[in-house]
């Protein structure tokens, strides 16, 4: 039987495969910023991205709470040369996705939600 890390790796690989070239990197991260599995590019410091992704999710939840608009489902940064998407994967972890410029965000979000759901069930 595959370990939980192997199962998470499979979920991330499935996301990368289904989203194709739109996804530049993906990682599963604990809510306290520890990288569980990373498929980020080699020139990306996955540990730092993990901490930043967890911070983004924490701040997003704080904003949602202050505004009383419910539970945060995702947070997205759109930059000149790409996008960064973070969403919860259950209560204890999150999914971070680095998208290339011009990516089909709608399609990637659907795939990301499936991956986040899968990770939440593994953990």
């Amino acid at each position: 039987m595959a370990t939980r890390q192997e199962q998470i790796s499979e979920a991330l690989d499935r996301l990368s495969s289904n989203a194709g070239s739109d996804v530049a990197g993906v990682a599963a991260v604990s809510m306290d910023g520890i990288v569980l599995v990373s498929r980020m590019a080699v020139d990306v410091n996955a540990d730092r991205v993990g901490a930043v992704a967890a911070t983004m999710m924490g701040v997003t939840r704080r904003v949602s709470g202050e505004l009383r608009i419910g539970m945060a489902e995702e947070t997205i940064i759109k930059a000149d040369h790409g996008l960064f998407l973070v969403m919860p994967a259950g209560d204890q972890s999150l999914l971070a996705v680095n998208l290339r410029q011009g990516a089909n965000l709608g399609m990637v979000r659907l795939e990301a939600r499936d991956a986040a759901q899968a990770i939440s069930q593994i953990l």
């Binding site: 809510m31 306290d32 910023g33 924490g58 701040v59």
Partner: peptide, 18 residues
Amino acid sequence: AELVGGERLARRLLTGMG
């Protein structure tokens, strides 16, 4: 910790790991 959602992450950020 209140801002980012947890003390462990906050400590991680304060040590420059983030």
